[in-house]
Nucleic acid binder design. Structure first.
Length: 841
DNA sequence: CAGTGAGCGAGCTTCCGCTTGACTT
């Protein structure tokens, strides 16, 4: 009753008050909005704008290059509704607090908001939160400022530069190499790193050397101990190694010296996006995009702080929580509060490091992947505030008067575990042998050489990049941002510049010399080298595009290009330079480069003469075709048409040999007979296949058509027949075209090449052929046919759009629906994870 | 799906950084 009264009073006494909202706060992320609203109380309404709300026009260059490079900004279709809602709310508000992140992009978001929402200057208060805690937020509110237009200009320069580079280079690639390719400041350098590394590997010749070691035994208090020691020097030739062993025959060894040194290890800083991706890759074998997807889930459910950050900083509140946790779980001796400083180039530090929201939650509810990632984040955060580990390193030197060199045995003992109690950071390099405690040796002890070995070792080729190590490298170079590492990696794979693949190792012989009981044994052993799992390999297109770009745009492909333009962006941000002046100085020479290259450079096909076919005497070429690398046998003239064969997975124009080419050209060939009929292996449009009784069977990725046996062929045939049988619910002998099948989304009807949904009230097992035909006739496909030709043209356009959208990123306007269905969200997410998994595999 | 790759020409592709979305053949 009282409320009702108030309402009436309000209505009659303040009719002219048009402000329904006192304070409108706009942040970037909806999850952030939710938390902040709790801290601010009822006078504040918090909304999110979902990142950038305007961008350069998509279909053209979006920059007026003849008029001071004025950008043409548009509100993207999927943001229009949200922006108009914000605009309406802003009109009804007394104050609009623009609380986007405090970095270049965030400042620009605030500026775009002020423009798009038509906010009067006096109504705007610009604030920024570095951490989402009540004190930080209240402090931000009490220190508002205006939009920093210099910083906005630096962002405009960044945006326009990227557009100009991307939209001028890409069309050049369409003309010179093939359609739909792309180039850009970030992606092209990422590809270059991978191609450069591949070249290093191809040009690498391993050099062998010889490494000595020994196992000594000694007796102390009637007990026999053994100790392993490494020789202090390496040998270059087997002769030197042999000469050394000969000297060791009959030699007497004793302990010359024991040296003990204390050592310390410090914990790694808390996670940033890039280090989280690296550790999740090494420790959990997550791909970069999987890590980000799971981190997003944890963030949205309020379990961790924001996951796209380059900062290693923790809030005071987090430090206090960490201290309390460490004290109560491990004791006060384990606490050491540390302030880490960010070292990476171009870091903008708009957020905290990635940490648990509540550090007292050691585990979380959720999927297994969420639990694992959370645990990793929790441990890393806690460890970062723990004391150093204290170690003791011991070196025992063992020598003999008959040899110049000496052996060293090393041991490592942990005196105080400190942060190691919780977390150990892994590295990309091969793990060193765990060193433990040494047996009780003393200076002057006589050491018995049980065996002295010299092993041939080889210098190692540089490793190929993993997704995560590529991110690490990009971050070191200051290229890309936390929000773009994962998308960049998927872009270069989508363009087929790079593939993630596993390379089987090759066998290599090495020498093993062993001195046991005064006798030297010489043996040859085999080892597997060069095995690389889930690494990034350049494709032929990737290599050709990269070579083309380096040849013509070395300045853009330079590893330091981003760093040098970043310097200029900084000058703009400091108000020392006009942004369009900087763009002008860049664009004019760049544009000349583009048009020169367009005129002078020829179309790139990467054609390479491999040799002559011994039977036909025709030339064999390797070159880039529409669908990737291929072989061409014979010339392409009016009189004769050449034969074409696609290359197999793992083969490339760069590295294919004449031998390999000849075996590809020997297809199709007979594998053997099965059930009285020939099994023929061939190389088809979709890769290698086998044919049997007129039916085709694809080979698995792991199958090599060159070495396929008839036994394996039988397996493949049987497996496929089995699979079809398993997925068939019903067949009709009268009409073999109609089948009821089990699919990914449940049962469906297949007639010829068309598929139809089964109505919910019908049982798939009970369907008759007639019913199937009826369902087919009634199916929604008819609706499309019903459309008039005039509408068809429009429909065509929209369907094209939607199919395109579903293949890339599905965006829809069903925001409210999605929000309401948020309880069901995890399930749908799972489904999409599965989907992407199967499609990438 | 299944041994592609002609030639013509219309119409399309493309960047980097902020954010989250999502329901089927």
């Amino acid at each position: 009753m009282k409320n009702y009264f108030c309402f009436i009073l309000h209505k009659f006494y303040f009719p002219k008050n048009i402000f329904m909202i006192k304070n409108l706060v706009i942040v970037e992320s909806p999850a952030k909005a939710k938390t902040i609203e709790k801290f601010l109380g009822s006078d504040y309404t918090v909304r999110s704008c979902f990142g950038h709300i305007r961008d350069l026009s998509k279909k053209d260059l979006g920059v007026d290059i003849n008029n001071g490079f004025i950008p043409k900004y548009e509100i993207p279709e999927d943001k229009a509704k949200m922006v108009s809602e914000l605009k309406k709310m802003a009109k009804e508000s007394q104050v609009v607090w623009l609380a986007s992140d405090e970095d270049r992009e965030g400042e620009a978001i605030s500026w775009h908001l002020s423009e798009a929402l038509e906010l009067a200057k006096g109504k705007i208060k610009r604030i920024a939160f570095h951490e989402i805690t009540k004190t930080a937020i209240l402090e931000a509110i009490s220190n508002p400022r205006q939009i920093n237009i210099d910083l906005v200009d630096a962002q405009q320069a960044r945006r326009v530069l990227d557009r100009l580079v991307g939209y001028e280079l890409s069309p050049l690639l369409w003309k010179k190499i093939r359609p739909s390719l792309s180039a850009g400041r970030v992606q092209s350098v990422a590809v270059r790193l991978i191609v450069d590394r591949e070249n290093e590997i191809n040009n690498f010749t391993p050099v062998s050397f010889y490494k000595g070691s020994a196992i000594f035994s000694f007796i102390k208090d009637k007990k026999t101990y053994k100790i392993k020691a490494e020789l202090s020097r390496k040998f270059n030739t087997p002769g030197d190694a042999m000469a050394f062993l000969k000297k060791c025959i009959g030699a007497e060894f004793k302990v010359k010296d024991i040296e003990t040194k204390p050592a310390r290890k410090s914990p790694a800083p808390p996670f940033t996006t890039s280090t989280l991706q690296q550790e999740a890759s090494r420790k959990l074998s997550f791909s970069v995009s999987k890590t980000m997807m799971i981190a997003q889930q944890l963030y949205e459910s309020g379990k961790i702080t924001y996951m796209r950050t380059d900062s290693v900083n923790l809030s005071n509140m987090a430090l206090a929580m960490a201290k309390k946790e460490i004290e109560s779980f491990y004791g006060p001796g384990y606490v050491k509060i540390r302030n880490y400083t960010t070292k990476s180039k171009g870091a903008q530090e708009a957020h905290e490091a990635i940490r648990p929201t509540y550090i007292n939650s050691h585990v979380v509810e959720g999927t297994n992947d969420q639990k694992k990632l959370y645990e990793l984040i929790w441990k890393r955060t806690i460890a970062s505030q723990m004391s150093d580990a204290e170690l003791e390193k011991t070196n025992v030197t063992i020598e003999s008067p008959s040899i110049q060199d000496y052996f060293v045995a090393t041991g490592e003992v942990i005196k105080f575990d400190g942060f190691l109690k919780v977390y150990f950071e892994s590295s990309d390099e091969e793990e060193e042998e765990q060193k433990g405690l040494l047996p009780p040796v003393a200076k002057g002890d006589i050491m018995n050489p049980e065996e002295i070995n010299v092993v041939e070792r080889f210098t190692q080729q540089p490793p190929r990049y993993t997704e995560a190590s590529l991110v690490k490298k990009l971050e070191e170079l200051g290229i890309g941002r936390p929000s773009t590492y994962a998308p960049t990696i998927s872009t270069i794979q989508k363009r087929e510049y790079v593939i993630t693949s596993t390379k089987e190792g090759t066998e290599r012989k090495y020498q093993y010399l062993s001195l046991i009981k005064d006798k030297i044994l010489e043996t040859q052993k085999l080892e597997t080298v060069g095995f690389e799992k889930s690494k990034l390999f350049p494709t032929d297109v990737g290599t050709l595009v990269n070579n083309f770009l380096i040849q013509n745009f070395e300045n853009i492909l330079d590893y330091n290009f981003t760093a040098s333009v970043e310097k200029e962006f900084d000058e703009i941000a400091e108000g020392k330079k006009a942004w369009n002046q900087m763009i002008k100085e860049f664009y004019h020479p760049f544009h000349v480069q583009v048009s020169e290259t367009e005129k002078t450079s020829k179309k790139v096909s990467g054609v390479k003469l491999l040799g002559v076919h011994p039977e036909t005497q025709k030339n064999i070429y390797a070159k880039l075709g529409k669908f990737g690398g291929m072989l061409q046998l014979g010339e392409n003239t009016d009189e004769e048409k050449p034969r074409f064969v696609g290359l197999l997975k793992g083969q490339s124009i760069e590295t294919i040999t004449l031998q390999e080419a000849l075996s590809l050209l020997s297809f199709p060939k007979l594998v053997g007979k099965y059930l009285g009929e020939e099994v023929v292996a061939g190389l088809g449009r979709f890769g290698p296949y086998i044919r049997h009784k007129g039916k085709f069977y694809s080979l698995k990725k792991t199958d090599n058509p060159l070495t396929l046996t008839i036994e394996r062929a039988k397996e493949i045939i049987e497996e496929k027949i089995q699979k079809i049988e398993n997925s068939t619910i019903k067949e009709f002998s009268a009409n073999p075209d109609i089948r009821v099948l089990k699919g990914r989304f449940g049962p469906y009807i297949s007639i010829g090449k068309m598929n139809y949904k089964i109505p919910k009230d019908m049982i798939p097992e009970d369907l008759t052929a007639e019913e199937c035909l009826m369902i087919a006739e009634k199916s929604p496909k008819k609706e499309v046919a019903k459309k008039t030709p005039a509408r068809k043209a429009v429909a065509k356009k929209t369907t094209k759009k939607t199919t395109k959208k579903t293949t890339t990123k599905t965006k829809s306007a069903k925001k409210t629906v999605a929000k309401k269905a948020s309880v069901k969200k995890p399930a749908t997410k799972k489904a999409t994870i599965k989907k992407t998994k199967t499609s990438t595999k």
